[in-house]
Amino acid sequence: MKNALITGATKGMGRAIAIALAQEGINIAVNSRKAEDLAAFKTELLQINPAIKVFTAVADGSNKDELLRFAKNAEQELGTITILVNNLGMYAYSKILDDEKNLFQKMINTNLMPSYELYRFFGKTMVSVGEGHIFNICSVAALNPVVEAGIYSVTKAALYSLNNVMRLEMQQHGVKVTAVIPGSTLTDSWKGQAVDKDTMVMPEDIASAIVNIYKMSKGANVDELIIKPAGGQL
């Protein structure tokens, strides 16, 4: 049985991805800052598939020490992690000149640092066993910057670049790396705004795509996947 670790998995895309992987019989490791959210989600995942193991940890993914403790404990509880979904992220609607004092570092610690640190933590083991798949949840803002979300665009572009370096480092070792690049997706980033879900990408669309990419033959990899609203970006 395979083991997956997903950051930021109690809401939005991460939640949908965890559910989709659980349905495939894959053990799941997830973290959150809220113990009650983790307990409820663990119960839900085990109801979906009682045959899997679910490891949860109260950990702030934007805190390096807590993140790596979560990774280490997940590995000890489940075994070798061969599916890594770097999903943790935050969105801030702000032009760079208007950014709050600590927003830059907060964005780096949330949108970029976890993917870098988890890659370093799990990457050598993936190389040693000759298998693995890393999914980095980027954004169309990485390709087409949104000036009204300046530092968000910058950090997602950095994640996209990191993804490409990961892929080149890993491709000779049998480890796959995929950049998932969603457009306007119905997550908490849109909370409080009047939106029509029929004009947006749904989290389940991202989850379905990831499962299908993961299930491809050993010799095939999707370098990057762009999923945008059929009617264009919102």
Rank of each mutant, 00 (worst) to 15 (best):
Q23Y: 14
N144G: 10
F41L: 04
D65K: 13
H173L: 08
I6N: 01
P229F: 01
T110G: 04
K42T: 13
G12P: 00
A16D: 06
S217K: 14
P114T: 03
Y116H: 07
G14A: 05
E117I: 05
V30E: 01
V85Q: 06
K106Y: 09
M166Q: 06
K228G: 12
K64D: 13
N31A: 11
E169I: 01
A20Y: 00
C138H: 05
A18Y: 05
I48S: 05
K64W: 13
Q233A: 15
A141C: 12
I52K: 01
N27D: 12
I213N: 08
L103N: 05
L38I: 09
C138F: 03
D223R: 15
Q76E: 15
L186M: 10
V175N: 00
D198G: 13
N109T: 05
A9F: 03
N102K: 13
T56L: 03
A74Y: 07
Y116N: 03
Y91S: 13
S189M: 15
F122E: 03
E36I: 10
N63L: 09
K218Y: 12
I181W: 05
K64T: 12
G183M: 06
A74C: 14
A209V: 01
T187G: 07
T43N: 14
D98I: 06
P182M: 07
T82R: 09
A39W: 14
V175Q: 00
V146R: 13
I210H: 01
N73W: 11
E66I: 08
Y93K: 15
I28K: 02
V211T: 10
A59H: 06
L103P: 01
K176N: 09
M200S: 04
I181G: 03
V211M: 10
S139G: 10
T56E: 03
N49I: 13
I210L: 05
A22H: 02
R69T: 15
I28R: 02
G232K: 08
Q105W: 15
D198I: 13
A207L: 05
P50S: 09
Y214A: 04
A149N: 11
K218G: 13
T80N: 11
M13F: 07
A29M: 05
E24V: 06
E77D: 14
R167Y: 11
I83G: 10
R15E: 11
A92W: 03
L38G: 02
T56W: 02
K101A: 10
A35W: 11
T10L: 06
G12E: 00
V201D: 05
L78P: 03
D98G: 06
L84G: 03
V177L: 04
V222R: 04
N87Y: 11
W190P: 04
Q171K: 11
H173N: 12
D65M: 10
F122D: 01
K2R: 12
A20N: 04
R167G: 09
Y91I: 11
E77S: 14
E66Y: 01
S161K: 15
L103M: 10
G123L: 00
Y93M: 13
V175Y: 00
